[in-house]
């Protein structure tokens, strides 16, 4: 028999090896090239950060991700809340409505948006019939946001739901007995206790949307490119792996700082016993 420790290491070895070869190696290689290709130095980062066009892309990527996160939160919060207060039957229905698109191919869903949002598409025609012309969304950051939001919404709803469902309803009764109307109890007791779920959902959605490639390519346009498109262009057309690595490095740093910020924001909740330790 293997002893416990050795068994544990063995079980751990397989996923670590897979991650190491297929994930960490790639990341490390990109980062290495960003500092070492074509020569050792920070010139790739300097070039990226000094290019106004590329900085505009970075800013757009950041803003679109913020927008996607905000919209996901604005729609996901009431949706998840409804799931926790409704009947079991309606809860199942709401869950299925979230999960079915989640199980559908991202490619299919994004193409569906292309069809919906294109010039003379259904949405455009509705707008035109209402007398609002020239509002075709395809090719704009708005279209990119819609596409990403639709795909990431389940992540937000699931994060919020997992948090909300664990909140002890007796706390709201307690608030009620202490003189808080339902609205006040919601704001003073329920909302603060959902901070861990909000932080988890926002972090997840923001970080995932930073690197989205499919939606910007299909729903956006070269004039409204996102950083992932720029990286692909560097790699596949310009073959500048160093520059691509620098862009990826900046994106990674941005993602990691958001994760770190999330950890800081969720920390009081974890210490006080109503947040998930991640």
């Amino acid at each position: 028999m293997l002893n416990d420790t050795r068994l544990r290491w063995l079980i751990l070895f397989v996923p670590v090896a897979v991650l190491g070869v297929f994930f960490w190696y790639g990341v490390a290689d990109s980062l290495w090239k960003s500092f070492a290709s074509p020569e050792i130095g920070l010139q790739n980062y300097a070039a990226f950060l000094q290019s106004p066009a590329e900085m505009a892309v970075l800013r757009r990527t950041f803003l679109v991700s913020i927008g996607v996160t905000a919209v996901c939160l604005a729609f996901g919060y009431p949706y998840a809340y409804l799931m926790t207060v409704t009947t079991a039957r309606l809860r199942t229905l709401l869950m299925v409505v979230v999960l079915i698109p989640f199980w559908t191919s991202m490619m299919v869903r994004t193409y569906a948006w292309v069809a919906l949002l294109q010039n003379n598409g259904p949405l455009d025609r509705v707008f035109k019939s209402l007398g609002i012309g020239g509002l075709a969304l395809i090719g704009t950051p708005g279209a990119i946001m819609i596409g990403i939001t639709q795909i990431l919404m389940p992540f937000m709803i699931m994060s919020l739901y997992a948090n909300m469902v664990r909140i002890d309803r007796r706390l709201l009764d307690a608030a009620d007995s202490l003189g808080a109307s339902p609205a006040v109890a919601f704001v003073k007791v329920f909302v603060p206790m959902t901070v861990p779920g909000v932080v988890a959902g926002c972090t997840l959605v923001f970080v995932l949307s930073l690197g989205f490639y499919l939606a910007p390519v299909l729903l956006g346009s070269p004039q409204h490119a996102m950083l992932s498109q720029l990286i692909v262009q560097q790699v596949s057309q310009l073959l500048d792996f160093g520059r691509a690595g620098a862009m990826a490095g900046v994106l990674l740093a941005l993602a990691l700082s958001v994760v770190a910020l999330g950890a800081v924001l969720a920390r009081p909740a974890i210490e006080r016993g109503y947040g998930e330790n991640t």
Binding site: D168, D173, S177, A180, V189, P192
Partner: peptide
């Protein structure tokens, strides 16, 4: 009357203190 207008103090079984 809704509970918040009854002005009755309640000590709950598992205290129901607000953790935050």
């Amino acid at each position: 009357l809704p509970p918040y207008r009854r002005d009755i103090g309640i000590v709950f079984q598992h205290y129901a203190l607000f953790p935050h």
